[in-house]
Design a protein around this nucleic acid. Structure first.
Lengths: 210, 210
DNA sequence: ACAAACAATGACCGTTGGTCATTATTTATA
DNA sequence: TATAAATAATGACCAACGGTCATTGTTTGT
């Protein structure tokens, strides 16, 4: 029975078409300003159809967030291969995160939005859960690097690697968020550039790990 | 001519009444879910009147954010008196920030929203600018502590204190944001508590400064 | 007592996310 | 191939919302 498979394929395809369209519109106008009517038009579908594939505008946005996490994960997996010690791998994770935020500013925005979203595990939708799993996968990469670093002695003892990973990641996200949202202000009031802030952040990270 | 003064006083008073009402409603339902009609009812005013005092719902929210920053600033100024060295004062700033986030979770949320808000300096409204100034004032407290720590030798040389202050603050905010939004997930998937994360963060901060 | 200035009102408007009865298309059955 | 059943897509429609503004009410100055 190939019909069911074909239908499933078509459904997946149409879903992707919708997410593509949503990306175009939302990246252009921002989540709040973008409308479902615009997305429908861009996808060459009726508005009602969008709701056959996504429960709400939020849920559609989470599909975009998920894409962001998948790209980030892929970048991290690729980049980390080059590291020759745990320490190096940790540094690579950081550098890659920065690179991601610069290369895919729109996806990075979605990840910031995700981080700022309160999560109700009980009421979680499919899409949300997947984004969450991908977020966890990203952290796992860092956890592994930290474990390796402790084992090979390239970083000092850090206690529970899970904790270290989450805290490192949160600190990084915090700095990148400020860099993204507030550099213009900080530059205006304190004459500090993005590079200044990132350099200082790096210096601190190194002290923390060595 | 006392009439002008009385009118100005009344205007300030009514403004505060509106912000009080907005706090009640927005803290209860969240910014998006709260409606201007609800705020108007809580303030015992008509909806139109709200717009005589605030340009938009966002601008009204920024008045709440501003209150948050003022409270935080006050707490910091008070707490920092107890510090006997630059290092101690930096630690106190961190502890107080945590305390603030726990004692005033709603105000802390507003500050996170502010941090996550892109700020268009050119198009800034009065209210926004004031929030910004208060945000800067908070950072200034930290800058001062860092300067003192460098001078009295209680922390190692850290380069430009402005940079150090912003990065420290951003890292802290990042960790507190994750703690606020994601502990339930982290606890569920990784069995880590809020305290675990904060303890690790502290350990890292100490290493960075010493 | 009257007019001018100021303040507050709420009916109204345009826009939006989301719904659902209707229509169109595809699949299964004979 | 004809017909019924199941599946998919549509867009008119709705309720709710942020925001506006002509009208009404109140205070001040003459």
């Amino acid at each position: 029975m190939g019909i069911a498979e074909r239908k499933a394929r078509e459904r997946v395809h149409r879903r992707n078409v919708i997410v593509d369209a949503a990306e175009d519109v939302i990246f252009k106008y921002g989540f709040s300003a973008a409308t479902m009517a615009q997305v429908a038009k861009a996808a060459e579908l009726s508005k009602g159809t969008l709701y056959l594939y996504f429960k709400s505008k939020e849920e559609l946005y989470r599909a975009i967030i998920l894409r962001g996490f998948i790209i980030l994960k892929k970048m991290l997996r690729e980049a980390i291969k080059e590291g020759n010690s745990g320490y190096e791998k940790i540094i690579i994770v950081g550098k890659t995160y920065i690179e991601f935020s610069e290369k895919y500013p729109n996806y990075f925005t979605t990840i910031l939005d995700y981080e700022n979203d309160t999560f109700n595990l009980a009421a979680a939708e499919t899409e949300s859960l997947q984004a969450l799993e991908e977020g966890n996968a990203v952290i796992e990469i860092l956890i592994k690097a930290i474990r390796e670093g402790t084992k090979d002695g390239s970083i000092t003892e850090q206690g529970n690697p899970f904790e270290t990973a989450f805290v490192l990641w949160s600190q990084f996200t915090g700095v990148l968020q400020v860099v993204k949202r507030k550099v213009n202000i900080i530059e205006h009031y304190f004459s500090l550039t993005k590079e200044d802030l990132l350099t200082t952040h790096w210096r601190m990270i190194e002290r923390m790990l060595r």
